[in-house]
Simulated assay, not measured.
Amino acid sequence: MNIDAIVRLVLMLGIPAFMMWRGYKKMSEDERNDLKTDVTSKRFIATYGLVALSFVFLLVEPIFEMTWMKVISGVLFSIGMIVSSVFIWLNASSKWKAMLGIISSMIALAIFLWAIN
């Protein structure tokens, strides 16, 4: 086992999780219900959920040293970014702004795929 990878996993997931939990506890009941509906929506799960899950696989991969986790991470990130691009295009007020968002999503996808190699 790689101790550095375990420390990185704890820091990269533990600190944000603690901060989100603390912020959730400070919310009113209405804000909590709004957050629950937003997080469980199909759009959120298909975009941000897949991207976040891909980062979890990427952080866990050095611990178990299984290269297929990188492949799964790349696939999940790709699907998440493509679905995000489709939602950007469908919900944009201006197609010019949508193209900027799509181009930045594709650049992020290219950088991510390059980085995991």
Score class of each variant (00 low, 15 high):
residue 4 D to A: 10
residue 4 D to V: 09
residue 5 A to M: 04
residue 7 V to W: 09
residue 7 V to S: 07
residue 8 R to A: 14
residue 9 L to S: 02
residue 9 L to A: 10
residue 11 L to E: 11
residue 11 L to N: 08
residue 11 L to C: 14
residue 13 L to T: 06
residue 14 G to R: 12
residue 14 G to Y: 08
residue 15 I to G: 06
residue 15 I to F: 07
residue 15 I to Q: 06
residue 15 I to T: 05
residue 16 P to Y: 01
residue 18 F to N: 01
residue 18 F to D: 00
residue 22 R to S: 06
residue 22 R to K: 07
residue 23 G to A: 12
residue 23 G to F: 08
residue 24 Y to R: 03
residue 25 K to R: 05
residue 25 K to G: 00
residue 27 M to A: 11
residue 28 S to N: 11
residue 28 S to T: 13
residue 29 E to H: 04
residue 30 D to S: 13
residue 31 E to V: 08
residue 33 N to M: 15
residue 34 D to C: 09
residue 35 L to K: 11
residue 36 K to A: 13
residue 37 T to N: 13
residue 38 D to F: 06
residue 39 V to Y: 11
residue 40 T to M: 11
residue 42 K to M: 07
residue 42 K to W: 08
residue 43 R to C: 00
residue 43 R to D: 00
residue 44 F to Y: 03
residue 44 F to W: 00
residue 45 I to D: 01
residue 45 I to V: 09
residue 49 G to V: 05
residue 50 L to G: 04
residue 50 L to T: 05
residue 50 L to D: 06
residue 54 S to Y: 04
residue 55 F to M: 15
residue 55 F to N: 13
residue 55 F to Y: 07
residue 56 V to P: 00
residue 56 V to K: 00
residue 56 V to W: 02
residue 58 L to A: 12
residue 61 E to V: 09
residue 62 P to Q: 05
residue 63 I to R: 04
residue 64 F to T: 13
residue 66 M to N: 15
residue 66 M to Q: 15
residue 68 W to G: 02
residue 68 W to T: 06
residue 69 M to C: 08
residue 70 K to Q: 15
residue 71 V to G: 03
residue 71 V to E: 05
residue 72 I to Q: 06
residue 73 S to F: 06
residue 74 G to F: 12
residue 75 V to G: 03
residue 76 L to C: 05
residue 77 F to N: 14
residue 79 I to N: 15
residue 80 G to V: 13
residue 81 M to Q: 14
residue 81 M to G: 08
residue 81 M to K: 14
residue 81 M to E: 12
residue 83 V to Y: 15
residue 84 S to N: 12
residue 84 S to P: 03
residue 84 S to L: 15
residue 84 S to T: 14
residue 86 V to D: 12
residue 88 I to S: 11
residue 89 W to I: 10
residue 90 L to T: 01
residue 91 N to M: 15
residue 92 A to F: 04
residue 92 A to S: 13
residue 94 S to M: 08
residue 95 K to T: 13
residue 96 W to P: 00
residue 97 K to R: 07
residue 98 A to I: 02
residue 99 M to S: 09
residue 99 M to H: 02
residue 100 L to M: 01
residue 101 G to N: 02
residue 101 G to K: 03
residue 102 I to C: 04
residue 102 I to S: 05
residue 102 I to N: 04
residue 103 I to F: 06
residue 105 S to W: 00
residue 106 M to H: 03
residue 107 I to Y: 09
residue 107 I to S: 07
residue 107 I to W: 10
residue 108 A to M: 10
residue 108 A to G: 05
residue 108 A to D: 04
residue 109 L to V: 07
residue 112 F to G: 10
residue 115 A to G: 10
residue 116 I to S: 11
residue 117 N to G: 14
residue 117 N to H: 14
